[in-house]
Write a protein that binds this DNA or RNA. Structure first.
Lengths: 175, 175
DNA sequence: AAAAGTAGTGGACATAATCCACCAACGTTG
DNA sequence: CAACGTTGGTGGATTATGTCCACTACTTTT
């Protein structure tokens, strides 16, 4: 088996994870790649930051909490659009918040199919704490200046709202 | 019908998913939020685009394939750093590529703990196809000009490499 | 008033990600 | 050289995420 090692090492064997050493091929010019990778890193950091706040662990809970806090009576389907998630998934997120006593679902006054979402007093408290943690989480990007941070976030915010408001048919783009 | 709809509708009941209507609270200034949401949208689009390429479905396979293609002999741990994923998860990604006949693992010539990764001829073909699809996927952002696309990707690329080369950034600054 | 569409829920399923333990190999240090 | 701590890769177990589809209740359209 180890007689195979007589060959000269392949060039890639010396590669390390630095921009000088790694060639990302087409991915270097692919926004999706960076979105995915950075999302991984950021999510891990976030999970650590809120690992003591059991009721709001999990991806969408924070956003749902803050959204409902800011917009009492908002509907789950709107939350789903903002989160860019499936309605059924958002439903489960809301289940979690509700069973933790942070959120209440009532029947909408204007459309009895729909639900109107509200925070409980505990939900409001949790929202305060969450806001604090979110602001703290900016430190994860501590070596970014404010200008750099703004430069990164601004195009993404713009893109985000385009996708949310425009019917984003998956795989079928405008030609 | 035990819920009483007697009350006037809450303000949030009229909220729709537009930037004029929605207030994202602190999340509006939180990079993580946009990274997560956009990642959702982009990943869904990508899954549709490659749903016929069974062997490379799943998150990290594309990146691994292209990386190994560009750097024959690269080690799994380096791939893991680039993907920002757990080593064991990358191991399973490589398992998938290997059982699909796209990739081969050999013992590294320089360190027999490590593996040297190579694409098979089918792997090279697949990499060609993947490159094509990745370029096509740019169309998902079809309403972004090239300048806007560059404006979005440039800060993220920079941030990405900072995090890869300096994991666990705890307040020290780069320059 | 029938038909078509929408809001929310729930079940079943498939991936994705984490945690932890383990073994083999490296490379120091004395 | 031999014991030690460290690193690279693998595997098991568990949990979290996300998707698909079906179903009920209600609303809107015709």
């Amino acid at each position: 088996m180890e007689t195979e090692n007589l060959n000269a090492p392949a060039p890639g064997e010396a590669v390390v994870a630095t921009p000088e050493s790694i060639d990302l091929d087409v991915l270097d010019n692919t926004l999706s790649f960076y979105l995915r990778a950075l999302n991984m890193a950021v999510s891990r950091d976030w999970d650590v930051r809120i690992k003591d706040l059991h009721p709001i662990r999990g991806i969408g809970k924070v956003t749902a909490l803050l959204l409902v806090g800011r917009h009492p009576g908002i509907r789950p389907s709107v939350v789903a659009q903002v989160l860019m998630k499936d309605r059924s998934e958002v439903g489960r997120v809301l289940d979690g918040l509700e069973t933790s006593g942070l959120l209440a679902r009532r029947i909408s006054a204007t459309d009895s199919r729909a639900r109107a979402l509200f925070l409980t007093p505990q939900g409001e408290e949790m929202a305060d704490e969450v806001r604090r943690r979110v602001r703290e989480s900016r430190r994860f990007f501590g070596d970014l200046t404010e200008a750099e941070y703004v430069a990164a976030i601004t195009p993404l915010r713009s893109l985000y709202w385009r996708l949310v408001t425009k019917p984003r048919a998956a795989g079928s783009e405008v030609h």
